[in-house]
């Protein structure tokens, strides 16, 4: 079976399709978040070293993963936009940046909330923390470049180049706990060695991660739809082909 993927990259197909997908992603995200929180607070046991403070992991790790993952996805869309000169790809990159920045901020904030009781400090200039802070500045840079350049096409390209160059920082964040002697603990979950956590803790964390992932897809699709109309202001993308007729009749 062959799927004509280029069909879905056409704005007039993508716009209504995205609109139909948003409620599904949002609903599943809410349900998984509910189950994840229940497991995290009521089923996962108390950590023998960190007591109840460790429960911050259920927002901290998913937020931190999303901050890095969304940056890579944003850079990929920016790269595709540069390569194919595709406006929709640039719009996707534009729509991803605010959500990525939000998760980076949350990773840093919840990290501070975890650091204070376990390390005795809200913040340390540790490799992991510093590189994550730089990621926040990168998101800010990508968004500021866009708003500071009036010509949309130049803004697209400038922020895409910035995003692509900055992607170097993502592996630095990820491997920082191995490359440098950091205060931040190493990975609790790894592809090579499996998990070092209790299975219910791991399950709750993974559920929250999937929920954050679906949440991100829902808000990014909602944002890209807004961006499409704001940038192109073309009413033909409306879900209903009869929208023009209805608007006329409604007058």
């Amino acid at each position: 079976m062959s799927v004509n993927w280029s069909k879905y990259s056409a704005p007039q197909t993508f716009y209504p399709l995205a609109g139909r997908l948003i409620p599904w992603f949002a609903c599943v995200a809410v349900v998984l978040m509910g189950i994840g929180l229940y497991m995290g607070f009521f089923i996962a046991p108390t950590d023998f070293q960190q007591g109840e403070a460790y429960r911050i992991i259920f927002v901290h790790v998913p937020a931190a993963w999303m901050s890095m993952f969304l940056y890579v996805v944003m850079a990929v869309w920016a790269g595709v936009g540069m390569g194919l000169n595709a406006r929709l790809s640039f719009m996707m990159a534009q729509a991803i940046a605010p959500t990525g920045a939000m998760f980076t901020f949350l990773a840093l904030l919840t990290g501070a909330m975890w650091g204070k009781p376990t390390w005795g400090a809200w913040w340390v200039w540790d490799a992991r923390l510093t590189s994550e802070l730089i990621l926040l500045f990168q998101y800010a840079g990508v968004m500021l470049l866009r708003t500071s350049i009036d010509d949309v096409r130049r803004a697209d390209r400038a922020s895409a180049v910035f995003a692509l160059v900055g992607v170097v920082n993502v592996p630095i964040i990820y491997f920082s706990v191995q490359w440098w002697n950091t205060l931040h603990q190493g990975a609790s979950v790894s592809m090579a060695t499996g998990s070092k956590m209790a299975s219910t803790m791991l399950m709750a964390m993974l559920l929250m991660t999937v929920a954050f992932w679906l949440y991100s897809i829902a808000v990014i699709l909602a944002r890209v739809r807004c961006v499409m109309v704001e940038r192109e202001s073309s009413p033909v993308w409306d879900e209903k082909p009869t929208a023009v007729q209805e608007t006329v009749e409604a007058r």
């Binding site: 108390t46 007591g51 109840e52 403070a53 429960r55 911050i56 927002v59 901290h60 937020a63 605010p98 959500t99 939000m102 901020f105 949350l106 904030l109 919840t110 909330m113 975890w114 204070k116 009781p117 949440y215 808000v219 909602a222 944002r223 807004c226």
Partner: peptide, 25 residues
């Protein structure tokens, strides 16, 4: 277990950010 301030600040801040993002969208 005495960590209420830290744990609830983390969860409430995350929830507020998400609600704010959805409302602004």
């Amino acid at each position: 277990g005495g960590y209420g301030l830290y744990v609830w600040t983390s969860f409430v801040a995350t929830a507020l950010c998400m609600v704010w993002e959805v409302l602004s969208l």
